[in-house]
């Protein structure tokens, strides 16, 4: 059984949990105490010199970056599963959405929100606009299709839902975008084990945000 080093509130960690649930893979969950610097200890640095979570260790093979992990899990444990299609064009579209998530949507959100949560910075209007622009793009991608890379649930939806749901902890109203609203409800009700894999961790993230913002 692969080990997953994770923290419940982290969106990228939740994307891995969602994928594991969708593939029916059991993971040996290992909580990493970032607060006490567990990720900077030599034994963790040996697994992942970049000391990020999530990190997956599968039979001695250590890999990090959530989107590299989730595509690895499908390739290894469920080859041919529509969650990560094998047809080159369909796969290219899923990859494109994964890069949209890491490079645009989650990036813009982190850039806007995390300095407020972890650095006590005031909200930056321009960065807020950056998040809105990313959401507009997602809304456009979802026009006329059920999921973000076509009419099947894919790992791109699981990665994006982990990111987008995190916006619930912020003042960004992503549900005003009609396609996003519809997609959000659809993924919540069709991603296997959504509540356990994402809902619980999202709650932990919201509480963390509340506590940090109080300080």
């Amino acid at each position: 059984m692969p080990d997953l080093y994770y923290v419940p509130g982290s969106a990228p960690c939740r994307a891995v949990l969602l994928t594991a649930r969708a593939l029916n893979i059991n993971l040996n969950l290992k909580l990493v105490d970032l607060h006490h610097g567990e990720h900077l200890k030599p034994e963790y640095l040996k697994l992942n010199p970049q000391h990020t979570v999530p990190t997956l260790v599968d039979d001695g093979f250590s890999i990090w970056e959530s989107r590299a992990i989730i595509t690895y899990l499908v390739n290894k444990y469920a080859k041919g599963n529509p969650l990560y299609p094998e047809d080159p064009k369909a796969r290219a579209l899923v990859d494109q959405r994964l890069y949209f998530d890491i490079g645009t949507l989650y990036q813009k959100f982190s850039d806007y929100f995390y300095p407020q949560v972890f650095g006590g910075a005031p909200a930056d209007k321009e960065k807020f606009t950056g998040v809105e622009n990313a959401l507009k793009l997602l809304d456009t991608f979802l026009e006329g299709q059920k999921y973000c890379a076509g009419n099947n649930l894919t790992v791109a939806d699981l990665s994006l839902i982990a990111s987008v749901s995190s916006l619930e902890a912020s003042d960004v109203n992503f549900l005003k975008y009609p396609n996003i609203k519809r997609w959000y409800e659809t993924v919540k009700s069709t991603a296997p084990g959504y509540e356990e894999a994402n809902g619980k961790g999202l709650q932990a993230f919201k509480e963390l945000v509340k506590n940090m913002m109080k300080k």
Binding site: R67, A68, N75, K76, I102
Partner: peptide, 21 residues
């Protein structure tokens, strides 16, 4: 090869979210 591909992907995401950014 799955492991080698996963490593390439990890580095690509490192570029996309860290180095290039």
């Amino acid at each position: 090869d799955l492991k080698r591909r996963a490593l390439v992907n990890q580095r690509l995401y490192f570029d996309s979210s860290s180095l290039y950014v």
